[in-house]
Design a protein around this nucleic acid. Structure first.
Lengths: 234, 234
DNA sequence: CGGCCGGCTTGACTTCGGTCAAGGGACAAC
DNA sequence: GTTGTCCCTTGACCGAAGTCAAGCCGGCCG
């Protein structure tokens, strides 16, 4: 694990604020490993004896259903961790994880880490904070699925990718459109149509590059939908 | 706080395994309070200086949207806790909470409790486990919203209420149907129609009593939907 | 160069769930 | 008893998203 990797891990909110030596010793022996696209990291129901920190690339956490469908709970990238929750409950992963873009990961052994958490209250708090964030992110996902249209969900996703809070921007879609579709709880066909509908909000696409005319406008659309423009009702 | 209440709190997974004296001292000064139906406990964005444990009744945790709609993240009852996550992040509640059936609650002050967590690794682990469970429950909700029809979601909800894993059962709906509808991410009208559709799966309703002909069959329906009965295909 | 393959888009059609409106039934107040 | 009100159900209608199928396009390999 070289210096850059260590920097990423220290940047991870999980280890934020801890000094590099501490983290290094904590992760001693957990060398980063390269994983190729498509590789399964674990399946739902597997014994949860490790969790992961992403150095780069993208990993999908999901649950396959009896029929071909699947529910996507998150897609993680540099500095993020996943699989921590499982080690505090039954010891079984409640979902599966698969590399979707070539990735370098650190696998942390649960038992070693748990001991460490037990002895280090600050690390425990970081852990609690990390899980709070996952919780928060899932709440956002539930909210989106319950009350937003597919076009609104896409709008919010694009806003979250935008480098600026207002004005024009160009973003690159970080992974396949079909994965984005699943991530947003829709079919690839519906994602295409959602892009078409967002054209009216100043969104243009070209392959995996997306041009946003006005991020502020797009955010508003994501929250309130296509307002009914009842400008007359003074 | 009388003996029965203390027993409930000790039964809470959050405090599972801790001895009553420890819990009692931990919650010292936090007397249970009665809350009437409709009362708001906190709004989204409020400073998160407390969390709650339910002694009885029902509390809805939700996020209102700009337009009249709302997303429901959970409905909690005896022995469950909510609002713990907020104290480990920004200190603002990411959702609102409202009493939906007359309830008795214990409000725990975050700062006192946080200190306690800091000094008590076992309590920290209970906390982590509690949040893992919330996480797990939200994952189930995301899964349901992403890939199940409204009738399937209702089927799974009914199964979760059933006292037995198989065979016939009668369950009482614990709160208003319109709240169940929101909890399952649909409108009241759709809930009615979902009940109609489940009649084919041996479900009969009479007010807030629901008769389930076969819990096992209902569970299967909740997972795979109305199978296409293609019995012909060799 | 040419052909294939996988990912994406588009179109036609269906189905599900939301919307709007009407009506029923339990229950409380008068 | 009567008249509300509130909650739930039902029906007619409509729009959003899924399904199925065809076609496009770019990348890869021969």
């Amino acid at each position: 694990m070289d210096e850059k990797d260590l920097k990423i891990v220290c940047g991870t909110r999980l280890f934020a604020g801890l000094d590099p030596e501490a983290v290094s010793s904590l992760l001693h022996g957990s060398a980063p490993r390269q994983h190729s696209k498509g590789q399964m990291l674990f399946e739902q129901g597997d014994p949860a004896d490790t969790f992961y920190i992403v150095l780069d690339g993208w990993v999908k956490v999901f649950r396959p259903s009896v029929m071909g469908d699947e529910a996507v709970f998150g897609v993680f990238t540099v500095g993020e961790s996943f699989g921590e929750a499982a080690m505090f409950i039954q010891g079984q992963f409640p979902a599966a994880a698969q590399v979707v873009e070539e990735a370098r990961l650190i696998a942390v052994h649960s038992d070693v880490f748990r001991k460490r958490v037990h002895n280090d209250p600050d690390l425990a708090f970081e852990m609690l904070a990390a899980m709070s964030r996952h919780l928060h992110s899932l709440m956002n996902q539930v909210e989106q699925l319950q009350i937003r249209s597919s076009a609104q969900r896409l709008a919010q996703f694009l806003v979250s990718l935008a480098p600026v809070p207002l004005g024009a921007a160009v973003v690159a879609l970080p992974y396949d459109k079909s994965l984005i579709a699943h991530r947003l709880g829709m079919k690839p066909e519906s994602l295409s149509r959602a892009f078409v509908r967002l054209r009216a909000q100043g969104v243009a696409t070209d392959g995996n590059r997306v041009m946003l005319g006005d991020v502020g406008q797009l955010r508003a659309y994501g929250e309130t939908g296509p307002l009914r423009e009842r400008m007359a009702s003074h």
